[in-house]
Simulated scan of single mutants.
Amino acid sequence: MKMPRILPLIAIAVGGIVAVRAVGLAPRPVPGRPGLGPGRRGRRRGRGPADHCLGPAVCALSEEQLAEQAGISPAELRIIQSLSARRDQLDARDTDFATMLPLMAAAELKLDERIAELNAIKAELEGMLGQADEREEAEVNRLVQVYQAMRPREAAAVFNTLADSVRLPVAQAMRPRALAAIRPRCRPPRPAS
């Protein structure tokens, strides 16, 4: 249950009291006075509570008069007015946050979906890399069996033509005895010129 905010209610009550009193204090036409006769609108001259009057029914009160009629000090009235203005700012912020919250939730949902897609792609790539590694290992094992089954002289001739990226894994997987039979027959690689 949401509690009503007290400061706006106080401000409305003070405004209502001021309005009722302002209507009750409106200047009446005075016979014999040229500026305020019946049917004429004019400003009163002199000093008094109705100096700021715009007409017989509308009157603006100063802060001191407003505070006096509300039964509070002018400082308290200013504080109430500033708190009311601050409350309006906070309400506007709340409204902004209320509109931003669904947008942020939608953006978060899209990010979560994108992360899930990227994780699926990552898992697929890892699976493909694992398959490639298994194929490479199977190919190396096949080549090891072929070279171990060959005569050392024939194996050395073919071994010399292999690239290092193929020759080294095959040599590492071969039995030491079979590799030792092939190795002396291999020529050292020619220097690049």
Rank of each mutant, 00 (worst) to 15 (best):
A60S: 03
L61Q: 13
S62I: 00
E63Q: 03
E64L: 07
L66A: 15
A67C: 02
E68V: 05
E68H: 12
Q69D: 12
A70W: 03
I72Y: 01
P74S: 01
E76C: 03
L77D: 00
I79C: 00
S84V: 10
D88T: 03
L90V: 07
A92D: 10
R93H: 05
T95S: 09
T95I: 06
D96S: 11
A98Y: 09
A98T: 13
A98S: 14
A98G: 13
M100T: 00
M100C: 01
L101S: 11
L101W: 10
P102H: 02
L103G: 06
A105D: 05
A105C: 03
L109I: 07
L109W: 04
K110I: 06
L111D: 08
L111K: 12
D112H: 10
E113A: 06
R114I: 05
A116R: 04
A116P: 01
L118P: 08
I121H: 05
E124L: 08
L125H: 12
M128R: 13
M128Y: 12
L129N: 15
L129Q: 15
D133R: 15
E134C: 09
R135K: 12
E136W: 06
N141F: 01
R142M: 04
V144M: 04
V144I: 05
V146M: 11
Y147G: 03
Q148L: 02
A149D: 04
M150V: 07
M150T: 10
R151H: 09
P152Y: 04
A155M: 03
A157E: 15
N160C: 14
T161C: 06
S165E: 14
P169S: 07
P169G: 10
Q172S: 13
Q172C: 12
A173S: 07
A173L: 05
P176L: 14
L179P: 05
I182F: 10
R183M: 15
C186M: 15
